[in-house]
Design a protein around this nucleic acid. Sequence first.
DNA 1: TAAACATACGGAGGGTGCCTCCGGTTTGCA
DNA 2: TGCAAACCGGAGGCACCCTCCGTATGTTTA
Lengths: 183, 183
Amino acid sequence: MSAMRADARRNYDRLLAEAEAAFRERGTGAPLEEIARSAGVGIGTLYRHFPTRDALLEALLHDRFSTLCEREAELAGADSPRAALIDWLRDFARSSSRYRGLPDSVMATLANEESALHASCHAMREAGARLLARAQEAGEVRADLRPDELLLLAASVSWAAEHQEGDSAERLLTLLIEGIDPR
Amino acid sequence: MSAMRADARRNYDRLLAEAEAAFRERGTGAPLEEIARSAGVGIGTLYRHFPTRDALLEALLHDRFSTLCEREAELAGADSPRAALIDWLRDFARSSSRYRGLPDSVMATLANEESALHASCHAMREAGARLLARAQEAGEVRADLRPDELLLLAASVSWAAEHQEGDSAERLLTLLIEGIDPR
DNA sequence: TAAACATACGGAGGGTGCCTCCGGTTTGCA
DNA sequence: TGCAAACCGGAGGCACCCTCCGTATGTTTA
């Protein structure tokens, strides 16, 4: 990392920037060849820096996932463990819908240990699990809810939001939390 | 339909059978060329009978969707409108997870009026909307829930179930209905 | 039943995207 | 300034998509 040739560094950065733009516009399935072209770089160069699509995603999402872990620490001392959990879930859902198709990648990644994204995903998952446990101990969330179920449901809210006009993630998350019973 | 050449009819049926098998094994993205080959037919023949992947899905799912509409009629006179709705949602979720990737197709289809699946999807959606309205009138389901939200959430349960070991759709649907608050 | 007509068949071919491999170029250090 | 290590680029093989049209087969008619 420290010893990286100047041209390599430049290309790496350009690739990241163009990938961000492409994923935003066309989802996580955006053609890699196009990303390379926009970055003014050959496809071989892209693949050397990022051997898989996931590696590219990893580089783009790593910070965001770490932030989610730190956020857990901040929320640890909150008044209501339930509110803390919900706040965190909101953030998680937002991160998961940063690009179209991302929820699929995130879920595939949590399952697949080989994946480049796995490590950071896993850490984030642990953070979520701790928040859930705390809320459960306080009796503010149903006791039989498992962490992987919760994350899965939160991811599925992101998935759902992709299929709806406007920014409906908030609303869908509320429904998930409250259920469909009368208010 | 009535006047269909014998060879055409035979090929049509074989294609449908092989498509069912392929979608079951490899999801809705299964290679069409493989389906044609297994059916002992050229790729051109597949495309003549089914101009798009959706057309193939439509043919496979049409019956199932109709059944869902009929089911609404059966459930119309149930004791509890809420239980009726939930039963129906269960069926909907089961249909939506018949093949891997199907929830995506179903949601894309509900949005896209050009799609071959759109008509039958739409009818089904109306059926769901009626069940919801009835449950809401009885005060058994929150009044601010919109039909499209409900279907979207049910589809997202199917999506989520694909990303989990075993048959978790039932459980996830329960969570969706009850919310995460303590029991 | 054989010709004539309507229908259906099949696969070659052109397009997109993935990923690998390796001859040629650039960089930074001695 | 020279040279090895690091890096670049794109050609090429693969998979899949979809269209087009010459050929074959089923069906009807005389």
